[in-house]
């Protein structure tokens, strides 16, 4: 039994090491204005170069570790968001980028907008801003990765002031 336990511990360590060093991202736009999306993309291009952290944006939810969501959730994209989340293998992490993803932002009250991301799927990290700067996105990602590494709770909590906005 002890041998199995030790073996599992080692395996866990290797898994965490791999997870932290090469997080594969899938990006989903559930109704955003493109502002956050181009900033996410700018984060990957030479000036900011998030790929040095091992980050890779790729296409299929089945290969992804981190779901990066932008925009408020519209009626049409809600099912899609849910489905993408369900298709991702465990353990999965969700990062909500931008004011809209956190609270609905400028689109609160529009008839086709359901609201924010965490009404549909659980969110691990929030990156506020309209749109957040690439530095902020990198910061959010690093916090998420640090949390995965140490097993500590994630430090980017939902900004309180945005919760009360109706």
């Amino acid at each position: 039994m002890n041998i199995t336990q030790e073996w599992n511990d080692i395996l866990d360590k290797v898994k965490t090491w791999a997870r932290v060093n090469s997080p594969w991202l899938i990006h989903y736009n559930s109704g955003s204005c493109n502002g956050c999306d181009i900033e996410i993309l700018a984060t990957l291009t030479p000036r900011y170069d998030a790929e040095r952290l091992g980050v890779k944006l790729q296409g299929s939810p089945r290969h992804a570790d981190v779901l990066v969501c932008t925009g408020p959730v519209t009626m049409q994209s809600r099912d899609r968001l849910q489905r993408i989340y369900d298709q991702m293998p465990d353990p999965k992490f969700v990062v909500a980028v931008g004011s809209c993803a956190i609270s609905g932002g400028a689109f609160q009250g529009c008839y086709n907008v359901i609201g924010h991301i965490d009404e549909v799927i659980p969110v691990d990290a929030y990156i506020p801003g309209c749109p957040p700067r690439p530095e902020a996105i990198i910061d959010g990602l690093v916090k998420l990765l640090t949390a995965i590494k140490t097993g500590a709770p994630i430090q980017t909590e939902k900004p309180e002031e945005l919760l009360d906005v109706v």
């Binding site: 736009n29 109704g31 955003s32 204005c33 493109n34 502002g35 956050c36 999306d37 181009i38 925009g71 408020p72 519209t74 009626m75 049409q76 994209s77 899609r80 932002g105 400028a106 689109f107 009250g109 529009c110 008839y111 086709n112 907008v113 309209c130 749109p131």
Partner: peptide
């Protein structure tokens, strides 16, 4: 898929607030 209802939403915001809203039709 990204239909948010901005045109209708604009009818519930005043002239100044709409400036903020229409800017977010497209981020580019």
């Amino acid at each position: 898929y990204v239909h948010r209802g901005i045109e209708k939403g604009a009818e519930a915001r005043n002239w100044n607030q709409n400036l903020y809203l229409v800017e977010r039709i497209c981020g580019i």
